[in-house]
Write a protein that binds this DNA or RNA. Structure first.
Lengths: 356, 356
DNA sequence: ATTGGCACTCAACAAGGTAGAGTGCTAACC
DNA sequence: GGTTAGCACTCTACCTTGTTGAGTGCCAAT
């Protein structure tokens, strides 16, 4: 209610319409919008001069700005923010698009495939950069651990996480095992420790090492040793981040010159930074839109980020999103990110249920 | 001998020295080299005017060219080719560098890690784009196949290739198996089929399906069915290509303008094209250097590619290499690629021996 | 064979000038 | 009151022009 009042105070309905039209036209063309082009569009039965007055007001209020004196106006961060919060009517995805997405997502089977596909879909359907983020296995609980004998001292350890990710790691060990022993050890460890995080498993195993000194059970000793090796320093210490369609950046006029192209590209390479920003929103529900100066990252390069959590409420798994210039078709991108987030969530949930 | 004569015919020793100096200076500076700068370097006790005569000859023979009338000279593809074939003395890597490389390579354990590390080393040590190519598992023989039960109808299949690559694939099947059965099936299939390619295994299994109709052995039936599922359509249909350091391109003056930056970047994205070029040289031994117009790919973007096969003679595994502007420090890059190729080969061979 | 000298060419840069787009303001209009 | 035509003003983008400096090719002298 407070907000509504404020809006009413700031902008009468005409000013809002003008702001809206400027933003839409700017998103479509990338150019600064002048009073004349605005008048020509026909939605206002006003002369350029009158529109100039309105535009001057909008500029005073911080919704628009002029790149230079004799140029038209461009929306500010604040302008976009207002547009998104109060004036955007997101178009739903068409039936066709939804079907096409569902089809493709359902066709993939490995989690990694699904994640990559999602980032690709985000990118191609929006013509922007698509990102999908999946935190490291370290943050999830383990569903099972198994061991396969490859050679005398070479054992492959396969860990399946509660997020469905399958990780394998080659262990080299001085201990020798038969296939049967490994089979049993896998069963034992899975039965005993599934549902815990890797870290918790490691701590338990280490505690067991101490307790077991007294027992002198050789098999148990070997089991614990192998378990610790498996859990220790498991491969994906890094988070997984799929960034797709970086080249789309190079076709946008706002990044046409060599310098911003370089800077932009290098920024997208900095996965740690991106992850940091996406992680911020892991705890928040619903669609997140970050505009221009609202974040370090988006500020420097005039980016906007539209992102959403995936996974179910109880256990958020990661983030999906789109990165692009501030001037992007939010009305189209927002539902796209939302839908793909949901699709990914239900796909994963469905997988998990089937595994029960 | 024929070649030597030709050289002698074309270029006397002074001309060769001049060509060499021009190429070295151009590699270092990226600028066109004028007769004056050449005279100033002191290696020739000649005036600019005399050098101009030599340079004009070299231009007539196609080793040099002028970007425009009042500019210095730049080496042509042919100039570089001559330089590399007859005049380059490759500097060996320093003891330190060799140690550092060996250390890092030995530290990695998973094949994938090693490959990625190698491409990173190639890139950072040369300040160019590093690439490592590993053909799909389909081209190698299989060392072992194992199955792990995850849930009722969900089985993870782990395939280890003779190249050391470990692939896992989640199978969904209507058949039900106990862990023990899967254990046995894995042993059976590995014993029966290791040493064959995936394709050969598939064909044998299919032949068995037909033969087995008469037998009515339920277990064998299930084994074959599962085997076919495992082998069919295995995950990495694609080749693996690690491209590292693409951003280094953006710092080279030859790609400073927005257009060539865009084109260059997009070219590096086209992995299929790159793979096609690298595959061409899988059958050839020793260091390969491809300059400018010598290939479609390198022509368009003024690239050179320095590459080398890795793996042992009997079984080539893939290619390592560097991509950069024609103007690159071949004398340094060549031994680097060569050494990393060898390092990678012996690392993999060593792994394989240990696995016997 | 080598070299100094000289005319010539061309890219790169700077300066000046013009056109056009767009604004803000004011005064007139409804 | 809101609306609008008119006008002076501003600023960018672009074109033109001139200048500078680097570099060449050629010729005649050494």
């Amino acid at each position: 209610m407070v907000q509504k009042l404020e809006i009413h105070d700031d902008l009468d309905s005409r000013a809002r319409e003008v702001l809206r039209e400027i933003i839409l036209q700017h998103i479509a063309s990338g150019e600064a919008i002048s009073s004349r082009t605005l008048a020509k569009c026909g939605r206002f039965h006003l002369s350029p001069a009158s529109l100039r007055n309105v535009m001057a007001d909008l500029e005073d209020l911080g919704y628009l700005q002029q790149p230079h004196t004799s140029a038209g106006r461009v929306p500010t961060d604040r302008g976009y923010r207002f547009f998104i919060d109060h004036m955007m009517n997101a178009t739903r995805l068409s039936e066709e698009e939804r079907h096409s997405i569902d089809d493709q997502v359902n066709h993939a089977s490995q989690i990694e495939e699904v994640l990559q596909l999602t980032s690709k879909l985000l990118s191609t359907l929006s013509d922007q950069v698509g990102v999908v983020f999946m935190p490291t296995l370290l943050q999830f609980t383990v569903r099972s651990i198994d061991f396969i004998l490859v050679a005398e001292s070479k054992i492959i350890c396969v860990i399946v996480g509660s997020n469905g990710v399958v990780v394998n790691k080659v262990l080299e060990t001085r201990l020798t095992f038969t296939r049967d022993e490994l089979e049993k050890i896998g069963r034992y460890i899975t039965a005993e420790f599934s549902g815990l995080t890797l870290d918790a498993i490691r701590r338990r195993l280490i505690r067991m090492t101490e307790a077991e000194r007294a027992l002198h059970d050789d098999m148990l000793k070997k089991t614990i040793a192998l378990g610790i090796e498996a859990v220790n320093d498991v491969a994906p210490v890094e988070h997984d981040l799929y960034v797709e369609g970086a080249s789309s950046i190079f076709l946008k006029p706002e990044y046409a010159d060599a310098n911003s192209m370089r800077r932009t590209f290098l920024a997208l390479q900095e996965k740690e930074k991106l992850i940091e920003i996406l992680e911020q929103f892991l705890s928040e529900d619903g669609l997140q839109i970050l505009i221009g100066s609202e974040s370090d990252f988006t500020q420097v390069h005039n980016f906007s980020i539209v992102a959403r959590r995936y996974g179910n409420q109880a256990a958020p798994l990661g983030m999906v999103g789109i990165i692009g210039p501030m001037r992007m078709e939010y009305a189209r991108v927002a539902p796209l990110v939302d839908y793909l987030g949901r699709a990914l969530s239900s796909k994963i949930e469905e997988e998990q249920e089937r595994k029960q």
